[in-house]
């Protein structure tokens, strides 16, 4: 019972946030709605007995990525002039609905395909609690090479960013 309520509460938060992201005219409020979505997803992870993943979701997505998004929106100086998703009397409105509907249909059909072929997956009550230690043991023995490659990838990201954002001339030059 409790898990059903939790699932619906956090699903509602996630969907409400996601709708806010696409419907609100102000980009900063959109970003704040995305924070709500991230928190809702973290709650769903909690409900799936994965508190570590939930906390990491909060730390990385809600705490770090969304702060970056907010900074980026503020850098681009998007003012409060409302740009609605459907500006009246424009040809592209139909295209927006079409492509959105196509994507939604793709998602829905893949979910239905999965249910048709595999049935509803029910959680295994007898399964042991989600353990970080088990993940760590697998990650540092079987997948150690991927782990080190990941370290390399994480090295490339900041180098690329710094190289791209380094300005010679213009307003940020010394």
């Amino acid at each position: 019972m409790a898990e059903v309520v939790i699932f619906y509460v956090f699903s509602a938060v996630t969907l409400f946030g996601a709708l806010g992201v696409i419907l609100h005219p102000n980009p900063i409020i959109c970003a704040l709605h995305l924070v709500a979505t991230m928190c809702g997803i973290a709650g769903l992870f909690f409900g799936l007995n994965a508190p570590f993943i939930a906390a990491v979701q909060l730390m990385v997505y809600a705490g770090a990525v969304m702060v970056l998004f907010l900074f980026v929106v503020m850098i681009f100086n998007l003012k409060q002039e409302g740009k609605h998703i459907f500006s009246p009397g424009q040809f592209t409105n139909g295209l927006k609905v079409l492509f959105g509907g196509m994507f939604a249909g793709l998602l829905l059909s893949s979910i239905l395909f999965k249910i048709n072929n595999f049935g509803y997956l029910t959680p295994d009550k007898a399964a042991p609690q989600f353990e970080v230690k088990n993940i760590a043991k697998v990650m540092f023995t079987d997948y150690v090479f991927s782990f080190e490659i990941l370290g390399l990838l994480l090295l490339v990201i900041p180098i690329g960013t710094v190289a791209l954002s380094r300005v010679r001339g213009g307003t940020h030059a010394k």
Partner: peptide, 24 residues
């Protein structure tokens, strides 16, 4: 601010990978 935030994300993820390591 943008640079600080993106560098923070990268280092934050690296630190998060150290947590399971330290645990085991």
């Amino acid at each position: 601010y943008y640079l600080t935030a993106i560098l923070f994300i990268v280092f934050d993820i690296e630190i998060l990978f150290m947590y399971p390591w330290a645990l085991t």
